[in-house]
Design a protein around this nucleic acid. Structure first.
Lengths: 275, 275
DNA sequence: CTGATGGGTTGATGTAAATCAATGCAGCCA
DNA sequence: TGGCTGCATTGATTTACATCAACCCATCAG
């Protein structure tokens, strides 16, 4: 395809690329393998029909200017367990998660990991002035992201001042979340951490974009290991704490990734620091 | 006195106000007492001659537009130990630190505290989209800040797009710092934390604005308690760890707030996670 | 079917850091 | 001068959590 939208001089933008999981799992993911599987090009309504547009930074672009957005966005599919941002690598792109869940993390040389956040659909990734990524990103389940090159993103920012304000808003929100997480990591007990986590996940599910968790039913896509790395605990402590909460009648732990919150009140008391 | 942070109907913009330490110290600082001591107004070169302008967000305002800045800025002096942002209070103002050091923190109901950062001259405070402050701020030594009302700041942002980009940059940098701190709090040992802290302080001192620490000499304005609350440790552990480092020939601990870094290399090995 | 693998739970033991406690020292004020 | 307070250091003891280890249960490949 060429000259799609009559705008671009070259083609590969707006194709669908897939980052495959061609190896079961390795300690440090190599650079994502990029496979372009479609070349029909993206429709004019690519962004218009985007399910996360109302809640993402893209919402500030007027419908009349949507084509500008679709021009520079490359939709990418990342399979579960696959990394697509490598900590320390040159920061060439920004991403917008459109479906699935991403874990963001930093690591120490000996392998210790801290997950700094989970990015749900609508989340914007890559905010860092530095020329290299300050964190890594890996798909938890099957993830779709929109990729913007740094260069193209700069042009968008120049042309749409509203976008800049929206990004500042996004960054501020993340900053608040980061401060909450620092309080959690530095001063909360294991039980308080897990309680806070469950309530946060509940809260996140209530936001637009994802199916709302009815009846306190949560579907956590991440493993116990991920939760542990997020809360600064070990797998065993997370598991034991969940069992303890079950024993206290706070939650029910289902098969797989299901957890049901039975007593929000009890969890809130815990999370606030009483217990 | 009433009208904490001026509701806006009265005049004191561009006067010099002082937040006094009229009580020695209480568990939770009451609202700062605001005392206007000058009323001559700020000179036209108020901002032009500002020592932190080159390194702060204000640097993006052209000299020709500086008067706009001086119009909306209120210089405020905060005495040591005095709070000037209360966590949870309505977020009415933004601040720019011009001298001294500020500690930013979050607290749990039972008094546990996490210091989320130390703000040195040039640092911009108050980035949060929420209508209330997500953190508290307290002067460590004598602090001077420039205060901007939310409203006036909005006007500045409308008039100077560059300011918005600079704020985004500022927020991104803070985000990176926050992620580093999460790694520290979640996964580093006490020794690694203290080592990281000393190196960060060294780094911060090398940036423009403050007198560069020559010969590895650091002057830390904060108490052991502040360091502990920043690193997610106790006072005793911080003290013991510093003593241990002294024993290892890594540092020298002087009287008061002086610490000299003897072997940066050893500290770096520690901070990176080998030790 | 069998064995391997990854995730999860639970138990026994170890330990890093918290807590409890005593002491020293400087600044401050009556 | 003496008493008070805040900050710091160091020692003794406790503890929350990590570590080590066993086990269960899916899933999947041969």
């Amino acid at each position: 395809m060429s000259g799609y939208f009559g705008a671009g001089t070259w083609a590969p933008e707006s194709e669908l690329e897939i980052i495959m999981s061609d190896m079961p799992s390795c300690q440090f993911e190599s650079r994502p393998r990029r496979i372009v599987i479609g070349s029909g090009g993206v429709q004019a309504d690519f962004c218009t029909n985007c399910s996360v547009r109302p809640t993402s930074v893209c919402s500030v672009i007027e419908p009349s200017d949507i084509s500008r957005l679709a021009e520079v966005a490359v939709e990418t599919i990342v399979s579960p367990g696959r990394g697509f941002i490598e900590e320390g690598a040159p920061a060439t792109d920004f991403f917008n998660v459109t479906s699935g869940t991403v874990k963001l993390f930093k690591a120490l040389p000996d392998g210790r990991r801290q997950i700094t956040g989970f990015a749900a659909p609508g989340h914007f990734l890559g905010l860092a002035v530095s020329d290299s990524y300050a964190f890594g990103a890996e798909a938890i389940d099957t993830v779709r992201v929109c990729r913007f090159s740094r260069e193209k993103m700069g042009e968008l920012l120049d042309d749409f001042p509203k976008l800049e304000r929206r990004l500042l808003e996004e960054a501020s929100n993340e900053l608040v979340a980061a401060q909450n997480q620092m309080l959690l990591l530095g001063r909360k007990t294991a039980r308080e951490r897990v309680a806070s986590f469950l309530l946060d996940q509940m809260q996140a599910g209530l936001l637009p974009g994802q199916p709302p968790p009815s009846g306190g039913r949560l579907h956590l896509p991440m493993t116990r290991g991920d939760i542990a790395d997020y809360l600064g605990l070990t797998i065993e402590t997370v598991s034991r704490t969940l069992s303890w909460m079950r024993g206290q009648g706070m939650i029910e732990v289902g098969k797989g990734y299901a957890i049901t919150i039975v007593s929000m009140a009890k969890l809130e008391v815990l999370a606030a620091g009483n217990g």
